[in-house]
């Protein structure tokens, strides 16, 4: 007996060219790259906000990424490599997400009209995502290029001088809002797009996810603005004599200032 759908009248499933698998790969890659970037940005925010704890702490975080605690000396090139990786993922994500952008003026008008008429939360949020994503093309690229080329210029003073004296703070302020809105909405959308954390009642879990999304976004915005303000303050205080590198006092002059408790014992020696 013949089986399979090809025996049914009006249907020809057999013998046709297989459809490209690229749309599937691109769709998932867009989501995954977004997820990686969003999680990276969460980490990034926590790391830069270490300045709120203390300059020493921020310095240590920086040095950690430069491999200081593993190799006994700093390699800013590691940061460059990480930045390069992020840049690649960022470009990939931007490239894939562009497929969803309005491709011409007609589509652009259509969507704006649609959004304004429908007054539907998630639809409006997509527009926010589109606008912030578009802005990040430029804002994030500039920042990433700077970090790629000057990976050593990260530290309590170095960063603060860049923020204030280098006049990066307006860019960082805008980028902060863009990143947090874009990433927060993006993570929420990822969850509903792929059905993660859906549970038994999809409507209820969507409501919860959305509430959580706003809480997280608000938290990171507050954290981000405070952090930026901290760097601006340090930079402002150093405005007359910018450019020096920060070194913890105990590292410069061990007898007066013992290293803090979290300093690894096997690195009690002053690094060369």
């Amino acid at each position: 007996m013949q089986t399979g759908a090809e025996v049914i009248a009006g249907v020809g499933l057999a013998d046709r060219p297989r459809k490209s698998r690229w749309p599937a790969r691109m769709d998932l890659t867009q989501s995954l790259s977004g997820l990686v970037l969003a999680l990276f940005m969460w980490g990034h925010m926590f790391f830069v906000s270490s300045i709120l704890v203390s300059k020493d702490f921020m310095w240590a975080i920086t040095k950690m990424f430069e491999g200081y605690f593993f190799f006994g000396r700093a390699f800013p090139g590691i940061v460059s490599m990480v930045v390069f990786g992020v840049l690649v993922i960022f470009v990939l994500h931007a490239f894939l997400a562009m497929r969803k952008f309005p491709a011409n003026y007609r589509q652009y008008r259509m969507f704006i009209g649609h959004k304004n008429l429908l007054k539907h939360g998630d639809t409006t949020l997509w527009w926010v995502q589109f606008v912030t994503g578009f802005a990040l093309f430029f804002l994030a690229t500039v920042h990433l290029y700077q970090m790629l080329m000057h990976p050593g210029d990260i530290g309590p003073f170095e960063s603060a001088d860049r923020v204030w004296t280098g006049r990066w703070w307006p860019l960082y302020l805008v980028a902060l809002f863009c990143v947090e809105l874009h990433g927060g909405i993006g993570l929420y959308r990822l969850a509903v797009k792929w059905g993660w954390l859906e549970g038994k009642d999809a409507d209820a879990s969507r409501k919860r996810l959305k509430a959580a999304k706003w809480v997280v976004t608000a938290f990171f915005l507050v954290l981000g603005v405070t952090t930026l303000a901290a760097y601006m303050k340090i930079g402002y205080d150093r405005r007359d004599d910018p450019g020096g590198r920060y070194t913890p006092a105990w590292l410069v002059n061990p007898p007066q200032a013992p290293p803090p408790w979290w300093w690894p014992s096997w690195m009690r020696e002053t690094p060369k």
Binding site: R99, H120, W126
Partner: peptide, 24 residues
């Protein structure tokens, strides 16, 4: 039909991957 068959009709950006999950 199998998933492969369904992919043939909706496996692209005018099908399921065109959905931007706005959920209106």
């Amino acid at each position: 039909r199998t998933d492969g068959d369904y992919y043939e009709v909706i496996g692209d950006d005018s099908g399921v991957f065109g959905c931007m999950s706005l959920l209106a």
